[in-house]
Write a protein that binds this DNA or RNA. Structure first.
Length: 436
RNA sequence: GGAGGGAUGGCCGAGCGGCCGAAGGCGGCAGUCUUGAAAACUGCAGUCCGGAGACGGACCGGGGGUUCGAAUCCCCCUCCCUCCUCCA
């Protein structure tokens, strides 16, 4: 949620920032007008209430001295004012609700350092990495690597898409045998890395959160109310299936006032992720490129504003470190203002090269939210000099597995059709060095 | 699913319808003492909104109601605890 105070003191700045996302100035104007109306109405209500309070005290005093006549006269006066205050309050509540609903569907302002641009085509490629150290060249991949992963998976019995569809419908992958083992190994490997390897700072605490959450939990991160169509909802119990572990992890600190000594709070979780993928019907339906349920390891931090950039850099470095150990070529994208997610102010995407599909696949998104989510979630921390501040949040995948597996099955496919398991991963898959 | 008990400040906990934004404790901050620390003692301090400020308002799980006036009385909801039931 945007800070209404900034909206008040710097409406033009907010307008200019949101324009970079394609938000019209008239929308910001509507917010500002509503805020003015709320404050005016609240002031009138507060004045009436103040009078009621004073009169009520006088009633008490009059009763004590036995001055019944005065008490009754003041009571009548107070009752009238009380009615006025009640009406005024109803007006304030309605206006506040309207403002809140509008604020909840207004996205975050982009960071000044985020590149300009309207969509994916304008994202900036920051760097590329290849396992050989030679600059990336699509043509350098051998013929045996140019087989799409769904064929490789079928060849080795790693995936059973038909039966997955039988159980749950299309885009619900069913992993089998060494495929399931590989997936489990990847999760354990990443979790162990993040929670024990403190080379670059304090370790991340492993969390196993619930995967069904309340509406308030989904609102805190910005997934509701705007993106309801993308979420699975269990109506009977009014619970939502999480689209990412970011959702439960962020709400760990929801409505809490944190001691600055506990910051940054660094959390790490493996969870399944559920996405309806509404509006992407027919796209990327083959193989592992897009599915309704997938596994991901997520890193998430709650911190003071000034700690956020370094944490974002650490998460990015951790995600990159995993890809390097897997020997997969990747590139880092600095998302332009127009392609930024709703709640994010700055995002770096990691994409691996998939030689069998012939395209870059997004496997991680590392975002910084400023205090946008913190304000929605009611997460604050004390300030050293006294007072409080809304906490900042940062998170990123490290990593989302299906597309990593897709790239791995293709890039590491050998001439004989077998797939080489990258050495760093082998201890986590029972020492297995190849598939097939 | 059935029965009962509970929810108060950063945390724990007391609280007759007006003198309660709320005792007390812990924790926090500042000071005295100390080479330093601890202990002890003294003092300060809730959160949020509006306002340049003076000041005003809100907040005792959430929402309604009664009343001139509600942390306190009534109703509904949520969550937690105990017992029974069921169960991986």
């Amino acid at each position: 949620m945007l800070d209404v105070r900034r909206l008040r003191h710097d409406p033009d700045g907010v307008s200019a920032d949101l324009a970079r996302r394609g938000i019209a100035a008239s929308e910001v104007k509507a917010l500002v007008d509503l805020d003015v109306a709320v404050r005016g109405a609240a002031q009138r209500r507060d004045e009436a209430r103040a009078k009621v309070k004073r009169l009520s005290k006088a009633v008490g005093a009059a009763r004590k001295t036995g001055d019944t006549a005065t008490a009754e006269r003041l009571q009548a006066e107070s009752r009238l004012l009380g009615e006025q205050a009640g009406e005024a309050d109803a007006g304030v509540a309605a206006l506040e609700e309207e403002l809140c609903q509008l604020l909840l569907v207004t996205p975050n302002t982009p960071d000044p350092d985020a590149p300009d641009g309207a969509g994916p085509q304008d994202n900036r490629v920051m760097r590329m990495w290849t396992p050989t150290g030679v600059p990336f060249n699509e043509a350098a991949y051998a013929e045996c690597q140019r087989v799409p992963h769904w064929e490789v998976a079928a060849q080795h019995g790693l995936l059973d898409a038909e039966r997955g569809a039988k159980l749950s419908g299309s885009m619900f992958p069913l992993w089998r045998g060494k495929g399931a083992r590989l997936l489990r190994g990847l999760t354990s490997w990443a979790l162990d890395r993040h929670t024990t390897d403190a080379k670059d700072g304090a370790v991340w605490e492993e969390v196993r959160p619930p995967t069904l959450v309340k509406t308030a939990t989904m609102v805190a991160t910005g997934h509701l109310p705007k993106f309801e169509e993308d979420m699975y909802h269990l109506e009977r119990d009014d619970l939502w299936a999480i689209p990412t572990a970011e959702v439960p992890l962020t709400s760990l600190a929801r409505d809490e006032l944190l001691d600055p000594a506990t910051l940054p709070l660094k959390l790490c979780a493996y969870t399944p992720c559920f996405r309806r993928e509404a509006g992407s019907a027919g796209r990327d339906t083959r193989g592992l490129l897009r599915s309704h349920e997938f596994d991901k390891v997520e890193l998430m931090a709650v911190c003071a504003a000034e700690q956020a950039p370094a944490l974002q850099a650490e998460i990015l470095a951790r995600a990159e470190g995993l890809l390097r150990d897997l020997g997969l070529a990747y590139r880092v994208l600095d998302l332009c203002a127009g392609d930024l997610g709703f709640s994010s102010m700055r995002t770096f995407d990691l994409e691996v090269w998939s030689p069998g599909v012939g395209s870059w696949l997004e496997v991680s998104s590392v975002s910084r939210y400023g205090d946008y989510q913190g304000r929605r979630a009611g997460i604050r921390h004390r300030l050293d000099g006294g007072g409080t501040a809304v906490a900042s949040t940062v998170n990123g995948s490290a990593l989302a597995w299906p597309r990593v597996v897709a790239a791995l099955l293709e890039a590491h496919r050998q001439e004989d059709g077998s797939v080489r398991i990258p050495p760093p991963l082998r201890p986590w898959v029972g020492g297995l060095s190849r598939l097939g």
